[in-house]
Design a protein around this nucleic acid. Structure first.
Lengths: 353, 353
DNA sequence: TTGTAGGCGTTATCAC
DNA sequence: GTGATAACGCCTACAA
């Protein structure tokens, strides 16, 4: 590198490096054993379960390991044990910001406990999802499924193999982390009712989405309680574009307030309505779901029912790791709370002038 | 296990499953060999490199494998070969949408070539980044570093071990994928100049960011060409919040147009300026960088210099996989083009009324 | 407490 | 073209 003629730089060095330490690759427990003057199995014990070895030898071995810059070979370890210190996470759509916080939450708590996160995307397809899940389970110690689209039975089949935790959906017999939508939706509907709204439209999400069904139930219940009419509108896809497309149907309902399956739909819907000359919230109130990144970029900023996504991700990871470490599988779903984030896109209806 | 009392559901079933196939775990090439009546090593050959075995035996083996529902054990395979069909990706901040598209691009092209993506975050710390990178390299076949913060030498050290590809930064001797900022910045500055702007402020990114330096250079060059004054303003962090904080300094420059290191800064800056009563773009034009998710949520929607992030991710993955498959390391950086996305946050300056 | 020996599932290097 | 056999690096009874 420091020499004049730097031709194929990295490649050649790579080969050289491999040849270090007497022509072998990385240091092994055998090398440590030799240096420390003990048996390889003692090294193994000292390095995996401290305490099963005398303090003296322990130190001897640790020093030798440090000196040789030893690092375990994960594959060699995985072969007999099957454990890889790895957890898989499958999301429906990597670019959907809903999952960003989930990913981060899982990654952070995983890393904190020395687990690596392996990520895959299902592209909103139940089939791709199952394939990815199967593939991951061959190498990962456990799996987190965020808003899975596959059947309950498929999920249970996976869970029968290795620990699985589901986010945003309840599957009997499998540990789940689910936002409890009632509080947040209740707050949203009450706020809308207090502002004089009598009819509310709910823009639903994907048909296979368990969460969409729960949210619709929650909306109906809250509306009944607050004496508000609730009508349901179907969307084509849970994206900004889907929100634009559904605008026409929403208007047709004559509802003065809209609650959408997620923020993306809300943002698209708002854009389309505003483009059509409507004033938000003077002529129509819009409330989203999740409080994703960017929800407050809009004008007016989006009122939304926040799901603590990061908490879901870290909660799922925690449950998974606990089970992996011999803990019992939680029998009841881990519920996290939702809350209304009141911003500018909802409010009092202005009388038509 | 198959008995009536199914208490802890998943757990117990899991144990049962493990016991299938004569008490052993999954089918191995030995099982296949037995069924097909050949030697295990022949099975190995047939399954890994088709063609080294007679067509007849090949079929025999494949049938047996299918029947036994055989799947390779990645660890066993990795042990002798060291290959894992895995590539690592390290990003500075998982929740920064700049990286979303990069992640997706890498994941998609990786999956297409049967590689799994392993993800880690450095939390904007050079140290954490290096640690994560080292850890990944023990298990992954190669590494993609997106906007790395560590030293060039550290990167080269990693690259000396296994193939590494860098995104958003140029490191001598290491394959890189970098957006060429000149075109996009040129378009932006010319557009601003055409709208009568005479003085432009550039809000810089992190001091360690290679990209920030390139963008500042590009801005200076383009401004010189267009006879526009360019002044540089430092930011505390490349986030929405950082954008808000820098607003005061930006105003102090008396510049009528601002180009920020990234969209996040631009959005925060715009929010703060608007909160202070300024009208964008009538009183000040704002142009961001990257065209991240949500850049068009703002009012006015953000004008920005788009970097093809997804392309960067998939390009990096492609380069990495090519090298992994025996290709030569590209000697020159892979350059992708930037372009101005003209939206509402930039335009003609209105005379003070 | 420590050493011995066998195995985890695959690939690679030989012979045949 | 195919079969035997030795690694690969670590774990874990079992024995000492």
């Amino acid at each position: 590198m420091t020499e004049p003629k730097t031709q194929g730089p990295a490649v050649s060095t790579r080969a050289a490096k491999k040849q270090a330490r007497d022509g072998k690759g990385n240091a092994t427990i055998y090398d440590i054993a030799k240096v420390a003057g003990v048996n390889p199995s003692t090294v193994s014990r000292a390095l995996s379960k401290p305490g099963r070895v005398s303090a003296k030898t322990q130190k001897l071995i640790e020093d030798a390991a440090a000196e040789l810059n030893y690092r375990v070979n994960p594959f060699a370890r995985a072969l007999p044990t099957g454990r890889t210190n790895t957890m898989g996470l499958i999301v429906a759509d990597i670019t959907n910001p809903t999952f960003f916080d989930i990913i981060r939450g899982a990654e952070t708590t995983g890393t904190a406990r020395d687990y690596t996160l392996v990520l895959a995307e299902s592209a909103e397809s139940a089939e791709t999802e199952l394939t990815a899940a199967r593939r991951m389970l061959t190498t990962a110690d456990g799996l987190i499924l965020a808003s899975p689209r596959m059947d309950d039975d498929d999920i249970r089949a996976l869970a029968a193999d290795k620990p699985v935790v589901v986010i945003n959906r309840e599957v009997e017999g499998v540990p789940c982390v689910i936002p409890d939508v009632r509080k947040g939706i209740g707050e949203a509907v009450r706020s809308l009712a207090a502002n004089g709204h009598k009819k509310l439209a709910f823009v639903a999400g994907p048909a296979r989405s368990w969460m969409s069904a729960r949210r619709w139930e929650g909306v109906q219940a809250a509306c009944e309680w607050s004496h508000v009419d609730a009508v349901r509108v179907e969307s084509t896809k849970p994206t900004v574009d889907g929100g634009r497309q559904v605008a026409r149907d929403v208007l047709a309902t004559k509802a003065t307030a809209v609650l959408t399956y997620n923020d993306l739909l809300a943002i698209g819907l708002m854009q389309e309505l505003q483009a059509g000359g409507m004033v938000v919230p003077d002529q129509i109130s819009i409330v989203g779901f999740d409080d994703i990144f960017g929800a407050d970029f809009t004008t007016p900023p989006l009122t939304t029912v926040r799901s603590p996504l990061g908490e879901c991700g870290s909660g799922a990871a925690t449950v998974l790791l606990d089970v992996l470490h011999g803990g019992k599988e939680p029998t009841a779903p881990l519920r996290v709370e939702t809350e209304l984030v009141l911003r500018g896109s909802s409010g009092r209806l202005l009388p038509p002038s």
